[in-house]
Nucleic acid binder design. Structure first.
Length: 281
DNA sequence: ATGGCGCAGTCTCTGCGA
């Protein structure tokens, strides 16, 4: 009997390099009786033909990917043992799959959505998202970021009407408040924290989404990303830019939300740590 | 003071990430 599921997001910064980390993390979570039932990955940096479906299958996970060469790329992994009997193959596991934001022409692979039926639960709609970085507020890439955020907002309006049980998981490349930044003064007005980005983040909340991490008391200075340079992790010079946003129906059933720093301590780590939300059945 | 690290591909350099 399923009592709860854990959904997670992790920017792996190249799945080719980080596949061992992903497998190890999933194994260790399971061994600790905290299995990850859905994992949304970002920054695969590989084309779809290179995606390691078979290795993940051997680890107990069915996967759906939306990749491209060199950059971006997102995926959704679901734990086979947690799925309802209706899920027998790819088509019945990932219902209503969607790649990219409808009506928003984009070469960059940043969005993958699917509805999943877990054992003993109503279906849940998951979106694996890799928000544009933005580079800096005076750059072309920042304009793209804001346009992308606008497109995301209007698409999610529709998605939320269709799916009351909805979660948006991924690397948002936005630190929502100064509490999510190690040195707010130094970062004031810069990329990842600038007012237009934070307004866009608030806009998502205004659709009826909730930052799962902030539903619970958290240790101060908890972050999800640390720069590889300048010993960012050792100094805890980080930012909380990876998030799990939940609709009202899922928020009501959210039991916990944490960031797992452990994989960031491993050899050759991603610069991001996975974030997890536990949802009651 | 604009650097530091790590990744992919064009591959001993460049572009990009955040």
């Amino acid at each position: 009997m399923t009592e709860s599921i854990r959904i997670a997001a992790w920017n792996v910064n190249s799945l080719k390099v980080r596949l061992p980390h992903v497998k190890r993390w999933l194994e260790e979570q399971e061994a600790a009786k905290k299995p990850i039932d859905a994992l949304c990955l970002q920054e695969l940096k590989m084309t779809d033909d290179k995606f390691p479906h078979q290795e993940l299958e051997a680890a107990g996970y069915i996967s759906l990917a939306a990749g491209q060469k060199t950059y971006n790329g997102v995926a959704i992994l679901v734990r086979r043992a947690a799925l309802a009997p209706i899920a027998t193959d790819l088509e019945t596991t990932f219902l209503k799959p969607l790649r990219n934001i409808p009506g928003y022409a984009d070469e960059q692979q940043r969005i993958l959505a699917a509805t999943i039926c877990f054992k003993g639960m109503q279906p849940i709609r998951l979106v694996s998202a890799y928000f544009p970085n933005g580079q800096s507020p005076d750059s072309e890439k920042f304009i793209y970021k804001l346009g992308w955020l606008t497109a995301l907002h209007s698409w999610l309006e529709t998605e939320l009407k269709d799916s009351a049980r909805f979660a948006l998981l991924g690397d948002f490349n936005i630190a929502p408040t100064d509490a999510d930044v190690h040195d707010p003064k130094a970062w004031e007005g810069q990329n990842l924290v600038s007012p237009p980005e934070r307004e866009a983040f608030q806009g998502l909340l205004d659709l009826g989404l909730y930052d799962s991490f902030r539903l619970f008391e958290q240790a101060p200075k908890t972050y999800s990303w640390w720069d590889y340079r300048m010993m960012g992790f050792r100094r805890n010079a980080g930012m909380r830019i990876d998030h799990i946003l939940l609709s009202d129906a899922l928020k009501a059933n959210c039991l916990s939300s944490i960031i797992d720093k452990v994989p960031r301590t491993w050899e050759q780590p991603s610069d991001h740590a996975p974030v997890i939300a536990e949802i009651k059945a």
